[in-house]
Amino acid sequence: MSKNHEGPTIISSLFNADFLGRPYMRQTVMIPWFYLEARVRYGNEFVGEMLMVSSFDALKDILKVQHESFRVHSIQYVTPGFVNETGQWKMEPLLEASEATNQQGERVPLFKVPDRTYTHLGVNTEVNLKSVKVLFPAVKKKRD
């Protein structure tokens, strides 16, 4: 999905040398991805870290490994224009990520944002999904 660039590879008189010396990320394919904000413990402090995640399977893996020193705080779902039907990239807060089973028994990822629910590479129009397993936000257990 992406490639890290450690050194200056942008050649232009529009940017100063300080900009060219900074690492950057370039996405080379037009697929949805996730932008996560995590809280990570460093000693006695928690700091925020941003993660760019390119697949649903990678997102599931990250959500599984959360513990008291690493917790996903928020997720943005980033979609290209042909997916979100606006013609341009869009970043939306992910309210819920879940996995369901369709009528053919296939796993279907669902990504709920404020105005719609996405699946695969488009808006979810499928009905009769079953066995929905919510992955994010994590359901918190009530303490008695």
Results as ranks from 00 to 15, higher is better:
S74N: 08
R116E: 08
E126M: 11
F136K: 03
Q103D: 08
E92F: 02
R26V: 11
F70A: 08
A138S: 09
K141G: 06
L14M: 07
F34R: 04
E126D: 05
V65F: 01
N102S: 01
V132T: 12
D115I: 02
D57C: 00
P32H: 01
W89S: 06
K130G: 14
L63A: 01
L20W: 03
K140L: 12
E92Y: 05
W33K: 13
P32F: 05
N124M: 07
A100C: 06
F136L: 05
V134C: 04
P32T: 02
L14A: 05
S69K: 13
I11D: 11
K3N: 11
R22W: 03
K142R: 10
N44P: 01
Y24I: 10
E96C: 15
G7V: 01
F111T: 08
T125P: 00
N102D: 15
D61R: 15
E45H: 07
Y35P: 00
E6Y: 05
L121Y: 14
M52Q: 12
K142I: 05
H73E: 09
F70H: 14
P32C: 11
K90I: 10
G87R: 10
K112R: 15
M91W: 08
L14D: 10
P93I: 08
M1A: 11
R41H: 03
L51Y: 15
G87D: 13
V113L: 04
P23H: 11
A38Y: 03
Y24P: 03
L36I: 08
S98M: 10
S98G: 12
L110P: 01
Y35E: 14
S98F: 11
G122D: 07
T101D: 00
M1E: 08
N16K: 13
E106K: 09
F111P: 03
D144N: 14
S2C: 03
T86A: 06
H73Q: 08
A17M: 06
D144T: 01
G43E: 02
V83T: 11
P80E: 05
K142C: 00
V65S: 00
L20Y: 04
F34H: 09
S55P: 05
M91R: 13
V123M: 14
M52E: 09
D115F: 12
P137H: 10
T9L: 06
R71Q: 09
P114Q: 12
V132F: 00
V123T: 14
T125S: 11
A38T: 15
S98W: 11
T9W: 02
M91H: 07
V78N: 10
E126S: 09
Q66W: 01
E85F: 10
M25G: 04
D18Q: 13
D61K: 15
H73P: 00
Y35K: 15
T28E: 05
M30E: 15
L59D: 00
G81K: 08
L110G: 03
M52N: 09
M91K: 12
Y24F: 15
Q66E: 15
V72P: 09
E99G: 03
K142D: 07
L94C: 09
Q27F: 14
E68T: 12
F111Y: 14
P93E: 05
I31F: 10
